[in-house]
Design a protein around this nucleic acid. Structure first.
Lengths: 218, 218
DNA sequence: GTAATAACTTAGACGAATCTAACAAATATT
DNA sequence: AATATTTGTTAGATTCGTCTAAGTTATTAC
Protein backbone atom coordinates (compact mmCIF):
# COMPACT_ATOMS: atom_id res chain seq x y z
CA UNK A 1 0.00 0.00 0.00
CA UNK A 2 1.19 3.54 -0.71
CA UNK A 3 1.16 6.53 1.56
CA UNK A 4 -1.03 9.55 1.12
CA UNK A 5 2.06 11.43 -0.02
CA UNK A 6 3.13 8.85 -2.57
CA UNK A 7 -0.37 8.78 -4.00
CA UNK A 8 -0.24 12.52 -4.56
CA UNK A 9 3.03 12.25 -6.43
CA UNK A 10 1.67 9.45 -8.61
CA UNK A 11 -1.45 11.42 -9.40
CA UNK A 12 0.52 14.52 -10.32
CA UNK A 13 2.88 12.50 -12.52
CA UNK A 14 -0.11 10.99 -14.28
CA UNK A 15 -1.80 14.31 -14.85
CA UNK A 16 1.31 16.15 -15.99
CA UNK A 17 2.51 13.52 -18.41
CA UNK A 18 2.93 14.82 -21.94
CA UNK A 19 2.30 12.77 -25.10
CA UNK A 20 5.49 10.80 -24.47
CA UNK A 21 4.48 10.15 -20.90
CA UNK A 22 7.26 12.38 -19.62
CA UNK A 23 7.25 14.87 -16.76
CA UNK A 24 10.07 17.13 -15.65
CA UNK A 25 11.00 17.21 -11.99
CA UNK A 26 10.57 20.95 -12.12
CA UNK A 27 6.95 20.81 -13.29
CA UNK A 28 6.20 18.25 -10.64
CA UNK A 29 7.81 20.43 -8.01
CA UNK A 30 5.70 23.40 -9.06
CA UNK A 31 2.45 21.45 -9.28
CA UNK A 32 2.85 19.91 -5.85
CA UNK A 33 4.39 23.05 -4.33
CA UNK A 34 7.17 20.92 -2.96
CA UNK A 35 10.81 21.90 -3.36
CA UNK A 36 13.01 20.18 -5.92
CA UNK A 37 15.27 18.21 -3.58
CA UNK A 38 12.25 16.69 -1.89
CA UNK A 39 10.77 15.72 -5.24
CA UNK A 40 14.12 14.31 -6.27
CA UNK A 41 14.41 12.01 -3.31
CA UNK A 42 10.80 10.93 -3.58
CA UNK A 43 11.43 10.00 -7.22
CA UNK A 44 14.26 7.76 -6.12
CA UNK A 45 11.99 6.15 -3.62
CA UNK A 46 9.23 5.59 -6.17
CA UNK A 47 11.85 4.21 -8.56
CA UNK A 48 12.85 1.70 -5.87
CA UNK A 49 9.23 0.64 -5.74
CA UNK A 50 9.13 0.28 -9.54
CA UNK A 51 6.50 2.96 -9.89
CA UNK A 52 8.65 5.50 -11.73
CA UNK A 53 11.53 5.26 -14.20
CA UNK A 54 14.22 7.52 -12.86
CA UNK A 55 17.61 8.32 -14.41
CA UNK A 56 19.74 11.28 -13.43
CA UNK A 57 18.99 14.43 -15.38
CA UNK A 58 16.36 12.71 -17.50
CA UNK A 59 12.62 13.31 -17.58
CA UNK A 60 10.47 11.19 -15.29
CA UNK A 61 8.04 8.56 -16.49
CA UNK A 62 5.56 6.39 -14.65
CA UNK A 63 6.07 2.67 -15.15
CA UNK A 64 3.05 0.56 -16.12
CA UNK A 65 2.67 -0.27 -12.45
CA UNK A 66 2.86 3.41 -11.57
CA UNK A 67 0.24 4.29 -14.18
CA UNK A 68 -2.07 1.68 -12.79
CA UNK A 69 -1.70 2.90 -9.21
CA UNK A 70 -2.19 6.50 -10.29
CA UNK A 71 -5.24 5.46 -12.30
CA UNK A 72 -6.76 3.83 -9.26
CA UNK A 73 -6.34 6.96 -7.17
CA UNK A 74 -7.85 9.06 -9.94
CA UNK A 75 -10.68 6.57 -10.16
CA UNK A 76 -11.45 7.13 -6.48
CA UNK A 77 -11.26 10.88 -6.93
CA UNK A 78 -13.62 11.02 -9.89
CA UNK A 79 -16.06 8.51 -8.47
CA UNK A 80 -16.19 10.62 -5.34
CA UNK A 81 -16.80 13.81 -7.29
CA UNK A 82 -19.66 12.17 -9.11
CA UNK A 83 -21.13 10.94 -5.83
CA UNK A 84 -20.89 14.35 -4.22
CA UNK A 85 -22.69 15.99 -7.12
CA UNK A 86 -25.27 13.33 -7.93
CA UNK A 87 -26.09 11.96 -4.50
CA UNK A 88 -25.32 14.79 -2.14
CA UNK A 89 -26.31 17.81 -4.16
CA UNK A 90 -22.99 19.64 -4.23
CA UNK A 91 -22.14 21.94 -7.12
CA UNK A 92 -19.44 20.72 -9.45
CA UNK A 93 -17.17 23.54 -8.34
CA UNK A 94 -17.37 22.45 -4.71
CA UNK A 95 -16.34 18.86 -5.00
CA UNK A 96 -12.66 18.92 -5.87
CA UNK A 97 -11.37 19.80 -2.42
CA UNK A 98 -13.44 17.15 -0.73
CA UNK A 99 -12.53 14.50 -3.29
CA UNK A 100 -8.84 15.31 -2.81
CA UNK A 101 -9.23 13.99 0.71
CA UNK A 102 -11.61 11.10 0.14
CA UNK A 103 -9.49 9.70 -2.71
CA UNK A 104 -6.93 8.57 -0.14
CA UNK A 105 -9.29 6.45 1.95
CA UNK A 106 -8.58 2.75 2.03
CA UNK A 107 -11.94 1.07 1.79
CA UNK A 108 -12.89 -0.97 -1.26
CA UNK A 109 -16.42 -1.37 0.07
CA UNK A 110 -16.98 2.35 0.27
CA UNK A 111 -15.92 3.03 -3.29
CA UNK A 112 -17.75 0.00 -4.63
CA UNK A 113 -20.91 1.18 -2.95
CA UNK A 114 -20.58 4.62 -4.49
CA UNK A 115 -19.92 3.07 -7.89
CA UNK A 116 -23.01 0.91 -7.54
CA UNK A 117 -25.23 3.75 -6.32
CA UNK A 118 -24.13 5.84 -9.27
CA UNK A 119 -24.81 3.04 -11.75
CA UNK A 120 -21.14 2.53 -12.69
CA UNK A 121 -20.50 5.93 -14.26
CA UNK A 122 -17.72 6.37 -16.83
CA UNK A 123 -17.20 10.11 -16.50
CA UNK A 124 -17.00 12.52 -13.59
CA UNK A 125 -19.01 15.76 -13.23
CA UNK A 126 -16.43 17.64 -15.24
CA UNK A 127 -16.59 15.15 -18.07
CA UNK A 128 -13.28 13.47 -17.28
CA UNK A 129 -13.30 9.73 -17.77
CA UNK A 130 -13.28 7.55 -14.67
CA UNK A 131 -10.54 4.89 -14.86
CA UNK A 132 -11.82 1.31 -14.61
CA UNK A 133 -11.06 -1.06 -11.74
CA UNK A 134 -7.67 -1.88 -13.24
CA UNK A 135 -6.76 1.81 -13.36
CA UNK A 136 -7.15 2.09 -17.12
CA UNK A 137 -8.81 5.08 -18.68
CA UNK A 138 -11.33 4.63 -21.45
CA UNK A 139 -10.48 7.43 -23.81
CA UNK A 140 -13.63 7.05 -25.85
CA UNK A 141 -15.38 9.64 -23.78
CA UNK A 142 -13.24 12.38 -25.13
CA UNK A 143 -14.69 14.39 -27.94
CA UNK A 144 -13.23 15.33 -31.22
CA UNK A 145 -12.21 18.96 -31.34
CA UNK A 146 -14.10 19.11 -34.63
CA UNK A 147 -17.35 18.42 -32.74
CA UNK A 148 -16.92 21.41 -30.45
CA UNK A 149 -18.65 24.74 -30.83
CA UNK A 150 -17.37 28.31 -30.88
CA UNK A 151 -16.90 29.75 -27.42
CA UNK A 152 -15.98 26.47 -25.79
CA UNK A 153 -12.70 26.12 -23.95
CA UNK A 154 -11.21 22.66 -24.11
CA UNK A 155 -8.11 20.81 -23.00
CA UNK A 156 -6.19 18.78 -25.55
CA UNK A 157 -6.36 15.23 -24.22
CA UNK A 158 -5.24 12.87 -26.94
CA UNK A 159 -4.20 12.62 -30.53
CA UNK A 160 -5.39 9.95 -32.94
CA UNK A 161 -3.78 8.69 -36.16
CA UNK A 162 -0.40 9.61 -34.79
CA UNK A 163 1.68 9.55 -37.92
CA UNK A 164 5.09 11.09 -37.85
CA UNK A 165 4.08 13.93 -40.12
CA UNK A 166 1.05 14.74 -38.05
CA UNK A 167 2.99 14.84 -34.79
CA UNK A 168 5.63 17.05 -36.36
CA UNK A 169 2.90 19.32 -37.57
CA UNK A 170 1.51 19.52 -34.04
CA UNK A 171 4.95 20.32 -32.68
CA UNK A 172 5.39 23.08 -35.20
CA UNK A 173 2.13 24.66 -34.08
CA UNK A 174 3.02 24.13 -30.41
CA UNK A 175 -0.02 21.92 -29.94
CA UNK A 176 0.76 19.66 -27.00
CA UNK A 177 -1.32 17.60 -24.60
CA UNK A 178 -2.87 19.47 -21.75
CA UNK A 179 -3.07 22.67 -23.78
CA UNK A 180 -6.08 24.87 -23.19
CA UNK A 181 -7.74 25.85 -26.44
CA UNK A 182 -10.51 28.32 -27.01
CA UNK A 183 -12.64 27.88 -30.10
CA UNK A 184 -13.25 31.23 -31.70
CA UNK A 185 -15.08 30.27 -34.89
CA UNK A 186 -15.94 27.42 -37.22
CA UNK A 187 -16.05 28.03 -40.94
CA UNK A 188 -19.21 26.54 -42.41
CA UNK A 189 -17.89 25.82 -45.89
CA UNK A 190 -14.89 23.61 -45.00
CA UNK A 191 -15.25 22.93 -41.29
CA UNK A 192 -11.96 24.61 -40.41
CA UNK A 193 -11.63 26.20 -37.01
CA UNK A 194 -10.16 29.39 -35.68
CA UNK A 195 -8.78 28.81 -32.20
CA UNK A 196 -6.74 30.62 -29.57
CA UNK A 197 -4.08 29.07 -27.30
CA UNK A 198 -0.85 30.10 -25.61
CA UNK A 199 -0.18 33.56 -26.95
CA UNK A 200 -1.72 32.85 -30.31
CA UNK A 201 -5.08 34.53 -30.70
CA UNK A 202 -6.25 33.28 -34.08
CA UNK A 203 -4.75 30.05 -35.40
CA UNK A 204 -6.58 28.20 -38.11
CA UNK A 205 -6.91 24.41 -37.97
CA UNK A 206 -8.27 22.41 -40.90
CA UNK A 207 -11.08 19.91 -40.33
CA UNK A 208 -8.58 17.14 -41.10
CA UNK A 209 -6.58 18.26 -38.08
CA UNK A 210 -9.43 19.05 -35.69
CA UNK A 211 -11.05 15.66 -36.11
CA UNK A 212 -7.80 13.98 -35.05
CA UNK A 213 -7.58 15.89 -31.81
CA UNK A 214 -9.47 14.61 -28.78
CA UNK A 215 -10.34 17.12 -26.18
CA UNK A 216 -11.77 17.32 -22.72
CA UNK A 217 -14.30 20.05 -22.06
CA UNK A 218 -13.33 22.34 -19.20
CA UNK B 1 -5.95 22.34 13.55
CA UNK B 2 -4.86 18.99 14.91
CA UNK B 3 -3.17 16.14 13.13
CA UNK B 4 -4.81 12.86 12.31
CA UNK B 5 -2.69 11.33 15.07
CA UNK B 6 -3.60 13.88 17.71
CA UNK B 7 -7.28 13.44 16.88
CA UNK B 8 -6.98 9.71 17.52
CA UNK B 9 -5.42 10.29 20.92
CA UNK B 10 -8.14 12.76 21.85
CA UNK B 11 -10.86 10.38 20.77
CA UNK B 12 -9.36 7.49 22.72
CA UNK B 13 -8.98 9.65 25.84
CA UNK B 14 -12.61 10.67 25.54
CA UNK B 15 -13.85 7.12 25.09
CA UNK B 16 -11.72 5.61 27.85
CA UNK B 17 -12.49 8.23 30.47
CA UNK B 18 -13.98 6.77 33.65
CA UNK B 19 -16.59 8.49 35.78
CA UNK B 20 -13.93 10.89 37.09
CA UNK B 21 -12.80 11.63 33.55
CA UNK B 22 -9.50 9.87 34.17
CA UNK B 23 -7.53 7.59 31.87
CA UNK B 24 -4.29 5.77 32.61
CA UNK B 25 -1.46 6.01 30.13
CA UNK B 26 -1.38 2.25 30.09
CA UNK B 27 -4.98 1.88 28.99
CA UNK B 28 -4.45 4.47 26.32
CA UNK B 29 -1.35 2.67 25.12
CA UNK B 30 -3.26 -0.60 24.85
CA UNK B 31 -6.28 0.90 23.13
CA UNK B 32 -4.22 2.69 20.52
CA UNK B 33 -1.70 -0.14 20.20
CA UNK B 34 1.07 2.38 20.65
CA UNK B 35 3.94 1.85 23.07
CA UNK B 36 4.02 3.65 26.40
CA UNK B 37 6.93 6.02 25.73
CA UNK B 38 5.24 7.27 22.57
CA UNK B 39 2.01 7.85 24.43
CA UNK B 40 3.95 9.60 27.16
CA UNK B 41 5.57 12.08 24.83
CA UNK B 42 2.33 12.70 22.97
CA UNK B 43 0.65 13.49 26.29
CA UNK B 44 3.28 16.12 26.96
CA UNK B 45 2.64 17.57 23.55
CA UNK B 46 -1.12 17.65 24.08
CA UNK B 47 -0.54 19.21 27.47
CA UNK B 48 1.47 21.97 25.76
CA UNK B 49 -1.55 22.56 23.58
CA UNK B 50 -3.82 22.70 26.64
CA UNK B 51 -5.81 19.70 25.49
CA UNK B 52 -4.75 17.35 28.30
CA UNK B 53 -3.86 17.80 31.96
CA UNK B 54 -0.61 15.96 32.45
CA UNK B 55 1.35 15.50 35.67
CA UNK B 56 4.03 12.87 36.19
CA UNK B 57 2.71 9.53 37.44
CA UNK B 58 -0.85 10.83 37.63
CA UNK B 59 -3.84 9.76 35.54
CA UNK B 60 -4.56 11.73 32.39
CA UNK B 61 -7.57 13.98 31.95
CA UNK B 62 -8.83 15.92 28.96
CA UNK B 63 -9.18 19.65 29.56
CA UNK B 64 -12.47 21.31 28.60
CA UNK B 65 -10.83 22.31 25.34
CA UNK B 66 -9.67 18.72 24.82
CA UNK B 67 -13.15 17.38 25.50
CA UNK B 68 -14.62 19.75 22.99
CA UNK B 69 -12.13 18.81 20.29
CA UNK B 70 -12.64 15.11 20.98
CA UNK B 71 -16.40 15.62 20.88
CA UNK B 72 -16.17 17.23 17.48
CA UNK B 73 -14.21 14.31 16.07
CA UNK B 74 -16.70 11.88 17.56
CA UNK B 75 -19.49 13.96 16.07
CA UNK B 76 -17.96 13.51 12.62
CA UNK B 77 -17.52 9.79 13.25
CA UNK B 78 -21.10 9.18 14.32
CA UNK B 79 -22.64 11.41 11.70
CA UNK B 80 -20.67 9.45 9.14
CA UNK B 81 -21.82 6.12 10.52
CA UNK B 82 -25.41 7.27 10.34
CA UNK B 83 -24.93 8.42 6.76
CA UNK B 84 -23.33 5.15 5.73
CA UNK B 85 -26.22 3.16 7.16
CA UNK B 86 -29.14 5.40 6.24
CA UNK B 87 -28.05 6.80 2.92
CA UNK B 88 -25.69 4.19 1.55
CA UNK B 89 -27.22 0.97 2.81
CA UNK B 90 -24.32 -0.39 4.85
CA UNK B 91 -24.95 -2.70 7.83
CA UNK B 92 -24.24 -1.29 11.28
CA UNK B 93 -21.33 -3.69 11.70
CA UNK B 94 -19.64 -2.45 8.51
CA UNK B 95 -19.45 1.25 9.14
CA UNK B 96 -16.93 1.67 11.92
CA UNK B 97 -13.80 1.14 9.82
CA UNK B 98 -14.92 3.57 7.16
CA UNK B 99 -15.99 6.21 9.66
CA UNK B 100 -12.59 5.93 11.38
CA UNK B 101 -11.11 7.36 8.23
CA UNK B 102 -13.77 9.86 7.22
CA UNK B 103 -13.86 11.42 10.70
CA UNK B 104 -10.47 12.99 9.98
CA UNK B 105 -11.51 14.86 6.85
CA UNK B 106 -11.36 18.62 7.05
CA UNK B 107 -14.47 19.81 5.29
CA UNK B 108 -17.25 21.54 7.20
CA UNK B 109 -19.43 21.53 4.08
CA UNK B 110 -19.24 17.78 3.75
CA UNK B 111 -20.32 17.09 7.31
CA UNK B 112 -22.97 19.78 7.26
CA UNK B 113 -24.44 18.26 4.13
CA UNK B 114 -24.57 14.84 5.73
CA UNK B 115 -26.19 16.30 8.84
CA UNK B 116 -28.80 18.03 6.71
CA UNK B 117 -29.52 14.98 4.55
CA UNK B 118 -30.01 12.92 7.69
CA UNK B 119 -32.36 15.49 9.24
CA UNK B 120 -29.98 16.45 12.08
CA UNK B 121 -29.91 13.09 13.88
CA UNK B 122 -29.07 12.87 17.57
CA UNK B 123 -27.96 9.25 17.67
CA UNK B 124 -25.79 7.05 15.46
CA UNK B 125 -26.74 3.57 14.16
CA UNK B 126 -25.56 1.99 17.42
CA UNK B 127 -27.70 4.36 19.48
CA UNK B 128 -24.77 6.44 20.70
CA UNK B 129 -25.56 10.11 20.95
CA UNK B 130 -24.04 12.41 18.36
CA UNK B 131 -22.27 15.35 20.02
CA UNK B 132 -23.68 18.74 19.04
CA UNK B 133 -21.79 21.35 17.03
CA UNK B 134 -19.96 22.51 20.15
CA UNK B 135 -18.77 18.95 20.84
CA UNK B 136 -21.12 18.40 23.80
CA UNK B 137 -22.73 15.06 24.39
CA UNK B 138 -25.78 13.94 26.37
CA UNK B 139 -25.95 10.41 27.80
CA UNK B 140 -28.51 11.01 30.53
CA UNK B 141 -31.45 8.92 29.46
CA UNK B 142 -29.57 5.62 29.13
CA UNK B 143 -28.95 2.84 31.63
CA UNK B 144 -26.98 -0.37 31.41
CA UNK B 145 -29.19 -3.41 30.89
CA UNK B 146 -27.13 -5.10 33.59
CA UNK B 147 -28.41 -2.54 36.12
CA UNK B 148 -32.08 -3.35 35.44
CA UNK B 149 -34.26 -5.60 37.60
CA UNK B 150 -36.47 -8.58 36.83
CA UNK B 151 -39.95 -7.58 35.69
CA UNK B 152 -38.83 -4.38 33.97
CA UNK B 153 -39.54 -3.81 30.30
CA UNK B 154 -36.95 -1.74 28.48
CA UNK B 155 -36.09 -0.57 24.99
CA UNK B 156 -32.64 -1.28 23.57
CA UNK B 157 -31.18 2.16 22.93
CA UNK B 158 -27.44 1.87 22.41
CA UNK B 159 -24.48 -0.46 22.28
CA UNK B 160 -21.10 0.30 23.76
CA UNK B 161 -17.70 -1.20 22.85
CA UNK B 162 -18.94 -1.76 19.33
CA UNK B 163 -16.52 -4.34 18.00
CA UNK B 164 -17.27 -6.23 14.86
CA UNK B 165 -17.68 -9.54 16.71
CA UNK B 166 -20.03 -8.06 19.25
CA UNK B 167 -22.27 -6.48 16.61
CA UNK B 168 -22.37 -9.73 14.66
CA UNK B 169 -23.29 -11.53 17.83
CA UNK B 170 -26.16 -9.09 18.37
CA UNK B 171 -27.29 -9.63 14.78
CA UNK B 172 -27.28 -13.40 15.29
CA UNK B 173 -29.49 -13.03 18.36
CA UNK B 174 -31.75 -10.54 16.55
CA UNK B 175 -30.91 -7.88 19.08
CA UNK B 176 -31.36 -4.57 17.29
CA UNK B 177 -31.94 -1.02 18.44
CA UNK B 178 -35.48 -0.14 19.46
CA UNK B 179 -36.19 -3.71 20.51
CA UNK B 180 -38.48 -4.17 23.54
CA UNK B 181 -36.93 -6.49 26.09
CA UNK B 182 -38.55 -7.94 29.21
CA UNK B 183 -36.24 -8.96 32.02
CA UNK B 184 -37.36 -12.27 33.42
CA UNK B 185 -34.60 -13.13 35.85
CA UNK B 186 -31.08 -12.30 36.96
CA UNK B 187 -28.76 -15.12 38.05
CA UNK B 188 -27.04 -14.14 41.27
CA UNK B 189 -23.84 -16.14 40.83
CA UNK B 190 -22.70 -14.78 37.45
CA UNK B 191 -24.98 -11.82 36.80
CA UNK B 192 -26.37 -13.36 33.64
CA UNK B 193 -29.90 -12.42 32.63
CA UNK B 194 -32.84 -14.27 31.24
CA UNK B 195 -34.84 -12.01 28.95
CA UNK B 196 -37.72 -12.19 26.50
CA UNK B 197 -38.04 -10.33 23.20
CA UNK B 198 -39.60 -10.89 19.80
CA UNK B 199 -40.84 -14.45 19.91
CA UNK B 200 -38.10 -15.63 22.19
CA UNK B 201 -39.36 -16.22 25.68
CA UNK B 202 -36.21 -17.14 27.56
CA UNK B 203 -32.92 -16.02 26.10
CA UNK B 204 -29.89 -15.91 28.34
CA UNK B 205 -27.45 -12.99 28.16
CA UNK B 206 -24.13 -13.05 29.98
CA UNK B 207 -23.16 -10.14 32.20
CA UNK B 208 -20.44 -9.25 29.69
CA UNK B 209 -23.17 -8.69 27.12
CA UNK B 210 -25.76 -7.01 29.34
CA UNK B 211 -23.36 -4.40 30.59
CA UNK B 212 -22.61 -3.39 27.03
CA UNK B 213 -26.25 -2.80 26.20
CA UNK B 214 -27.79 0.55 27.11
CA UNK B 215 -31.52 0.74 27.49
CA UNK B 216 -34.35 3.17 28.11
CA UNK B 217 -37.02 2.27 30.64
CA UNK B 218 -40.53 2.15 29.25
C1' DG C 1 31.28 28.63 -28.47
C1' DT C 2 31.25 30.78 -24.26
C1' DA C 3 28.68 32.75 -20.66
C1' DA C 4 24.49 33.10 -18.19
C1' DT C 5 20.49 30.81 -16.61
C1' DA C 6 17.63 27.08 -15.48
C1' DA C 7 17.13 22.38 -14.00
C1' DC C 8 18.74 18.78 -11.31
C1' DT C 9 21.51 16.48 -7.49
C1' DT C 10 23.88 15.96 -3.08
C1' DA C 11 24.58 16.81 1.70
C1' DG C 12 22.91 17.81 5.92
C1' DA C 13 19.18 19.34 9.16
C1' DC C 14 14.59 19.12 11.26
C1' DG C 15 9.89 17.95 13.15
C1' DA C 16 6.48 14.36 13.67
C1' DA C 17 5.47 9.93 15.26
C1' DT C 18 7.15 5.85 16.19
C1' DC C 19 10.33 2.35 18.51
C1' DT C 20 13.71 -0.22 22.21
C1' DA C 21 16.42 -0.28 26.33
C1' DA C 22 17.11 1.18 30.77
C1' DC C 23 15.59 3.32 34.84
C1' DA C 24 12.13 5.19 38.51
C1' DA C 25 7.81 5.30 40.94
C1' DA C 26 3.59 3.26 42.37
C1' DT C 27 0.98 -0.76 43.41
C1' DA C 28 0.25 -5.51 44.61
C1' DT C 29 1.76 -9.80 46.90
C1' DT C 30 3.23 -12.43 50.44
C1' DA D 1 7.46 -4.30 55.62
C1' DA D 2 10.08 -6.21 51.98
C1' DT D 3 9.86 -7.71 47.54
C1' DA D 4 7.93 -8.46 43.06
C1' DT D 5 5.21 -6.66 39.45
C1' DT D 6 3.10 -3.18 36.94
C1' DT D 7 3.03 1.41 35.37
C1' DG D 8 5.28 5.50 34.00
C1' DT D 9 9.56 8.17 32.47
C1' DT D 10 13.94 9.26 30.12
C1' DA D 11 17.31 8.78 26.62
C1' DG D 12 18.48 7.77 22.22
C1' DA D 13 17.53 5.71 17.52
C1' DT D 14 14.65 5.34 13.22
C1' DT D 15 11.60 6.46 9.29
C1' DC D 16 9.03 9.71 6.59
C1' DG D 17 8.51 13.84 4.34
C1' DT D 18 10.04 18.16 4.33
C1' DC D 19 13.52 22.03 4.09
C1' DT D 20 18.06 25.14 2.84
C1' DA D 21 22.58 25.64 1.01
C1' DA D 22 25.83 24.42 -2.14
C1' DG D 23 27.42 22.05 -6.10
C1' DT D 24 26.72 19.89 -10.93
C1' DT D 25 24.71 19.30 -15.49
C1' DA D 26 21.89 20.87 -19.22
C1' DT D 27 19.88 24.49 -21.85
C1' DT D 28 19.46 29.17 -23.58
C1' DA D 29 21.12 33.50 -25.15
C1' DC D 30 24.38 36.18 -27.08
Amino acid sequence: MHSYTEENYLKALFNLANDKGEVSANELSKRLEIKMPTVNSMMKKLAEKKLVNYESYKPLRLTEKGKKEAGLVIRKHRLTEMFLVQKMGFGWEQVHEIAEQIEHLHSPYFFEKMDEMLGYPTIDPHGSPIPDKTGKIDWTHYEKLSDCKPGEIVKLAAVIHTTDEFLKFLNSRELHLGLKIKIKAVEKFDGSMVVAYNKKTAESLSHTVSERLLVEKM
